[in-house]
Simulated assay, not measured.
Amino acid sequence: MHGEMYYQQNIPLMLWFFCANPPLEDGETTVCDGRQFFNQISSSTKELFSKNKLKFTVRIFKEDWQKKYQTNNLNTLEEMCQKNNTHLTVNDDQSIILEYISSAIIPSRCGKYQVFINSLLPTKQLSPKILKFEDDSEIPEDVLCELNEIAEKITTEISWQKRDILMIDNTRILHGRRGFADDQRDIYIRLCSPAFSF
């Protein structure tokens, strides 16, 4: 479960999903409420995250960052990083290291409650070495177990039917996906900001 692109400052505020073709079985999209998630977290874990921000650190080779950012100009890349509040280090071989620091818990857009929404859980599962606390200490395993248990407990599964549409508030609702084995599943996603008051 995660918020989309919470490893950078400029996140999409809204996500749209469209089911062009459902899987033969499994492959549900999962969602849960970040406000409810926050309320389920233990006091000790809330305190831990209030005192320690997350730090995402990734190394990207020259050819890869030039393709990803569609530029070979380091000054242009540096401007992009500054706008996204990301620290850039350029190595001798022109590979780069990007560091982005964020909170795991954020205020809601209305400012009335706290929301647990971030990219912590999938990052620790898929690329564990790139995510630590800001002081470079490891996120304790028992904390990760607690978060995964909460996510599983409060998750709602969405079983897709052809032409279904789903809209997600990416400032509050975490999402994920169940595994599937067939090659039929075809779900489109669009990332955006709403053209109305949000």
Rank of each mutant, 00 (worst) to 15 (best):
D142F: 13
F61G: 11
S44K: 15
K132Y: 04
H2M: 06
L13W: 08
R178C: 11
C192L: 11
F49P: 00
K46N: 09
I11W: 01
T71S: 15
F56I: 05
S95F: 01
I189W: 04
G27F: 08
G34K: 02
S127R: 15
N10I: 11
S50N: 13
N10S: 14
L77C: 09
P107F: 01
A104P: 00
I154Q: 10
Y113P: 03
I189S: 13
I189A: 14
I97V: 14
L54K: 00
I165W: 06
I11F: 01
S127G: 04
H87G: 03
P22L: 09
F38I: 04
K153L: 13
L191A: 15
I168V: 15
Q125I: 07
P122Q: 07
R59H: 06
Y100V: 01
I101E: 01
Q8E: 04
D92C: 02
N170P: 04
F18M: 12
Q70C: 15
T29Q: 06
Y113S: 14
I130T: 11
I187H: 04
P23Y: 07
Q8L: 01
E79P: 03
G176Q: 10
I11N: 06
K129P: 03
P128R: 10
P194N: 13
D183H: 09
S193C: 13
S43E: 13
N52E: 02
C192E: 06
D26W: 05
K67G: 10
W16G: 15
H87Y: 08
E79D: 11
K62V: 07
E78N: 14
R185C: 11
L98V: 02
N170L: 03
T76N: 14
L54S: 00
R172E: 08
L131D: 00
W160T: 14
F38C: 05
I158W: 05
K162C: 06
L147M: 10
N10R: 08
I60G: 01
S43T: 09
F61M: 07
Y100W: 00
L77W: 03
H2I: 11
D164G: 05
K51I: 04
I187F: 06
E99W: 01
D142P: 07
P22Y: 09
P128L: 09
T156W: 08
T155P: 02
I158V: 14
